[in-house]
Design a binder for these strands. Structure first.
Lengths: 223, 223
DNA sequence: GGCTATTGGTGACATAGTCACAAACAGCAG
DNA sequence: CTGCTGTTTGTGACTATGTCACCAATAGCC
């Protein structure tokens, strides 16, 4: 956990806020912490506040009516939940859920304060619209990827993204399949192929990246 | 084309605007018309204004780096282009394009006016955020569909959506494949199967729906 | 050591996408 | 009308991905 008295300055897009506006944000906001693996929002559980993430990661994923799951995106420290929250407010009956992937620290901005800020501060408006825009373009890219990208390419990219400093991915085949919205067996076979090529080593519950260069090359293959 | 002096009232979400705000919107806005098949926005072609559609349909689709195409959504009369425009402003290098599917009549709101409206009018803010939210939840649904839905189900649904009053869909297999982000051959084979079952009749450049009930039932199969 | 839940492996099959063509058709010039 | 041309649709062979029904290996725990 970090010092939280000046959290606004940790958001690149909010640094240009006027003094009074920044004060309003700091005063009318509560810092909340949630433990790992908590469902922050989900079907029938819409939050009162907009969250600005100070620390940790929130994974947003969707459970289909067919029982399939897919990870939509992640919110990292320095980003806001604005749009997800907005969606919840507008459309109760949607199926995405947000889960704290790590312990999470966030600033909770009440709706009324959020609305006031949007009204009074042009920089805040820019921040909010930029967040929406980024999310929507990311979703466009995701649709493109799901519809047209080969699975080996997608898996390679996801392994790189999920790997820690020591080139390890601590996850199961099942969880990887949810990352990409595919089936566990498909992941198992792809990983076997990667292993056969000497790109990775596997153990129960983890994947170790041995040849990052080769995997990067495959991941870049947008053909 | 319709009477355009009172266009604001044709937007459900804008009917609650205060008199002065409504006047601002009406005065600072130009009514534009674009012919069918015009590209309204696209890569390297970001519009100056937010569009509020008065008449016609805009199809938003994406061209992948692989050359594949997919229809993302349509904007109908009574809806706004707000978010697509916002995206363009924020991220120049994205690949979606908006095409007038029919002749289109729209009210063009300059950015500055848009910003002022967002600042000054709570109902306008609600309208804008509702539009964003709707789009994002729709994109979530689309991801779910592309990732997990069977193609016959998706095609059945799309045929219903695209059919006119006389149960005719005036399009080619190629265009249908872009609707769903798949290959032309796949569409041809699925349509052959529908025809074999007596659900449709085919002619060059069109599909006629013969058994709407059966197609609806398949389309509803969200399993 | 033995039990149990989780995780991963495998073959057979179904569905969807790719590739390389060929056939049917519409529009048009001659 | 005839023949040419570009568009639209049909087809087979093959690859990639998803599904289903299992089984095997492993870790944690008593």
């Amino acid at each position: 956990m970090k010092n939280t008295t000046d959290w606004v300055d940790r958001f690149a897009g909010l640094s240009q806020l006027d003094g009074p506006v920044k004060d309003l944000l700091l005063k009318r906001t509560k810092i909340v912490t949630v433990p790992r693996d908590t469902m922050i929002f989900g079907p029938g559980n819409s939050p009162e506040n907009m969250l600005f993430l100070l620390d940790g990661t929130v994974r947003v994923q969707q459970v289909s009516e067919t029982g399939h799951e897919i990870v939509l995106y992640r919110i990292e420290a320095g980003e806001s939940c604005v749009l997800t929250t907005a969606c919840l407010l507008a459309y109760e009956d949607y199926s995405a859920e947000g889960i704290a992937e790590t312990a999470v620290q966030a600033a909770a901005v009440p709706r009324a304060v959020f609305d006031e800020l949007v009204s009074q501060s042009k920089p805040f408006r820019s921040f909010v619209f930029a967040a929406f825009s980024k999310r929507i373009t990311d979703l466009f890219l995701m649709i493109d990827e799901v519809a047209f990208q080969r699975l080996d390419v997608r898996l390679a990219g996801r392994l790189l993204k999920l790997s820690d400093k020591s080139n390890r991915v601590a996850t199961t085949h099942q969880k990887l399949s949810i990352e990409l919205g595919t089936a566990r067996e498909v992941i198992s076979r792809q990983l076997q192929e990667f292993q056969r090529r000497g790109w990775i080593a596997q153990a129960r519950g983890r994947v170790d990246i041995l040849d990052r260069a080769q995997i990067s090359q495959l991941a870049a293959h947008e053909t």
